[in-house]
Simulated scan of single mutants.
Amino acid sequence: MNVVKRLDIGIKIPKQVEFYVFIIIIVLSVIIQAKSGLFFTNNNIMDLLRSMIVPSIYAICALLSFVSTGGPDVSFPLIAALSSHLATTITINIGYDGSIICVFLIAVFFGLLMGALNGWIIVKYKFPTLIVTLGTSSIFSGLLLGAFGAERIALPGVMMRFARASLLTVRNAETGLSSSLPFTFLILVFLYIVIYLVLNFTMVGRGVYAVGGDEISAQRAGFAVNKIIFGVLAVNGAVAAIAGVCYTVMSRRYLPTEFAGTEMTVIAAVILGGVRLTGGVGTLRGCILGTLLLTIVSNSLILIGVSVYWQKVFVGGIIIIGTAISAIQSRRAAKLSQEREADNYAVRKEIT
Results as ranks from 00 to 15, higher is better:
residue 237 G to L: 07
residue 325 I to D: 03
residue 73 D to P: 07
residue 27 V to A: 14
residue 151 E to R: 15
residue 275 V to R: 01
residue 213 G to D: 08
residue 228 I to F: 03
residue 95 G to D: 11
residue 217 S to E: 07
residue 276 R to A: 15
residue 148 F to N: 02
residue 91 T to W: 12
residue 7 L to P: 00
residue 23 I to W: 04
residue 247 Y to P: 00
residue 297 V to W: 01
residue 329 Q to W: 10
residue 130 L to G: 01
residue 311 Q to R: 13
residue 159 M to K: 06
residue 18 E to Q: 15
residue 83 S to Y: 07
residue 134 L to S: 10
residue 44 N to T: 14
residue 148 F to R: 06
residue 169 T to Q: 12
residue 184 T to M: 11
residue 136 T to N: 05
residue 200 N to H: 13
residue 52 M to F: 05
residue 252 R to G: 01
residue 326 S to Q: 01
residue 66 F to G: 00
residue 332 R to H: 07
residue 4 V to P: 00
residue 339 E to H: 12
residue 171 R to N: 11
residue 138 S to W: 05
residue 333 A to L: 14
residue 224 A to F: 09
residue 226 N to Q: 12
residue 119 G to N: 04
residue 70 G to L: 06
residue 238 A to K: 03
residue 184 T to V: 13
residue 166 S to E: 14
residue 206 R to P: 01
residue 124 K to P: 00
residue 174 E to D: 13
residue 294 L to M: 12
residue 319 I to D: 03
residue 71 G to W: 13
residue 67 V to K: 04
residue 139 I to S: 03
residue 82 L to M: 06
residue 119 G to L: 09
residue 133 T to A: 05
residue 88 T to L: 10
residue 170 V to G: 03
residue 120 W to S: 11
residue 39 F to S: 10
residue 213 G to E: 08
residue 25 I to T: 05
residue 102 C to A: 14
residue 61 C to N: 15
residue 315 V to C: 01
residue 81 A to E: 04
residue 285 R to V: 13
residue 5 K to W: 10
residue 2 N to A: 14
residue 117 L to M: 14
residue 71 G to A: 06
residue 139 I to N: 03
residue 147 A to G: 00
residue 81 A to F: 06
residue 245 V to Q: 04
residue 173 A to D: 15
residue 99 S to V: 09
residue 294 L to T: 07
residue 334 A to K: 12
residue 190 F to D: 07
residue 61 C to T: 15
residue 284 L to H: 03
residue 82 L to P: 05
residue 333 A to E: 14
residue 224 A to I: 00
residue 223 F to L: 07
residue 282 G to M: 06
residue 302 I to G: 15
residue 187 I to E: 06
residue 302 I to L: 08
residue 116 A to M: 11
residue 138 S to H: 03
residue 179 S to Y: 08
residue 166 S to P: 04
residue 65 S to C: 12
residue 262 T to Q: 11
residue 12 K to W: 08
residue 324 A to D: 01
residue 113 L to H: 01
residue 313 V to K: 05
residue 231 G to T: 13
residue 62 A to D: 02
residue 317 G to L: 09
residue 213 G to K: 03
residue 235 V to N: 01
